[in-house]
Design a protein around this nucleic acid. Structure first.
Lengths: 227, 227
DNA sequence: CAAAACCGCGAACGCTGTTTGCAGTTTACA
DNA sequence: TGTAAACTGCAAACAGCGTTCGCGGTTTTG
């Protein structure tokens, strides 16, 4: 969901998606992958990513912490599951409406809503999540929307990653507006900061900022691009 | 460095910048704040943010882990120190050259270089770092560059945060290009992904992408903006 | 029916950030 | 000048974390 696709030889941790959901020999697992992911997402929505500890997730499912490792090989696997589960909420993908910019913007709006529902999602994604089926479907849908665009695959992936990133910036700026506070700071040494705060508080930028930003970003990234 | 300034009543953890560097009564500390921050930055540059444990930092300075808490009240404080120290590398700020867009772009380029020197910086900043003197100076310089722009303070802060965010996206995409790998995945269910990989690998987008993106972002965010 | 494979469990390991009591050192004030 | 307060660094400990391991019990395979 970030970065361009290449096949570099990095420390490939074996993804969850490779391992079979359950073995063929033993007793049936008392919990499914989806149940685990759902419980973890619920916990993250409530307490943030830090609240998603193996013990907490296991506790929410009334199982022992170590038992989780029958389903996952690490906490990273759990986060991959969570990410893919939430990306699935983007379905169904826009189809048959307006220009590719319009469609992409619609998708971006849905991403923004998703990131607001799950404020921890950008962080979980930025951690280089291994794409699961839903994430692959998301990329596929993006590429489908970008089909009319005459640009190379690399450029398209760059654009997708950039849009995803900007969307998460908007989600963060909305969620954490007013996070940075300059109170109790001596502004004497910072004349322009001081002047800014002397000014009467201006209205926050209008609501179309999201659309205008993404439109200029998309056209800038994809339309005038050669390759 | 992210988000707009407001004075909301959030759980204000007391910043490092408030506490005096050393008391007036006891023996002289064997290490200064700067030495601690420098050691931590060195560690982060080498091993990433995860490598910056209190014990590791203390070890690099040949002191006990608990002793760090004579200078800092938490690890967050340490990260704040690290961030502000690195932001200081942006000095001196551009002055007297070209249009405000040109000057801001120059600053953005320097930020990009900074983020490449310290790949952990974006993460440390995104964690809502408490602005130190260097960060305040950075904001001050940004506002000075934006002085000719007729836009409200809130819009300017939004723009600054957005530029900072996009710069870190570029830094990440460059550092982690080829991170997401679709190898060993059955692409049968994802026709557009499959088609994308069947295509001969196209050249990566040209180098002016950074400039074009930021220019369109800046003009989109600030020039047509009302108040 | 035996062997292999898998499940869930509880206890442990090493790591983390942080707290605490201690002894020693420097300063401020009467 | 002497004493008390304030500060320093240290070692040890605490709770929490992700993770591993050996156990007994259950299910399937041959």
């Amino acid at each position: 969901m970030s970065g361009a696709p290449t096949s570099s030889a990095e420390p490939d941790r074996p993804s969850v998606w490779a391992r079979p959901e359950r073995g063929a020999r033993g007793p049936a697992p008392t919990h499914s992958r989806d149940q685990i992911a759902a419980a973890a997402v619920e916990l993250a929505d409530a307490d943030g990513l830090a609240g998603v500890s193996m013990r907490a997730v296991a506790g929410a499912l009334e199982m022992a912490a170590g038992s989780l490792y029958r389903h996952l090989s690490s906490r990273d696997d759990l986060l991959d599951l969570m990410v893919d589960r939430c990306v699935g909420e983007l379905r169904p993908y826009p189809k048959d409406g307006g220009s590719w910019q319009d469609q992409f913007l619609l998708l971006a709006r849905r991403q923004l809503a998703l990131y607001r529902r799950h404020p921890w999602l950008p962080d979980a994604i930025a951690r280089r999540a291994v794409p699961g089926p839903n994430t692959l479907a998301y990329f596929d849908a993006c590429l489908r929307l970008l089909q009319p665009v005459r640009a190379g695959v690399a450029a398209k992936f760059e654009a997708i990653a950039m849009v995803t990133g900007v969307v998460s910036l908007f989600a963060r700026s909305a969620a954490a507006a007013g996070t940075v506070t300059f109170d109790h700071v001596d502004l004497a040494a910072y004349p322009h900061l001081a002047a800014a705060f002397a000014e009467p508080p201006s209205a926050r930028p209008d609501g179309d900022l999201f659309e205008r930003t993404l439109r200029s970003l998309l056209t800038g990234l994809l339309t005038t691009d050669p390759a």
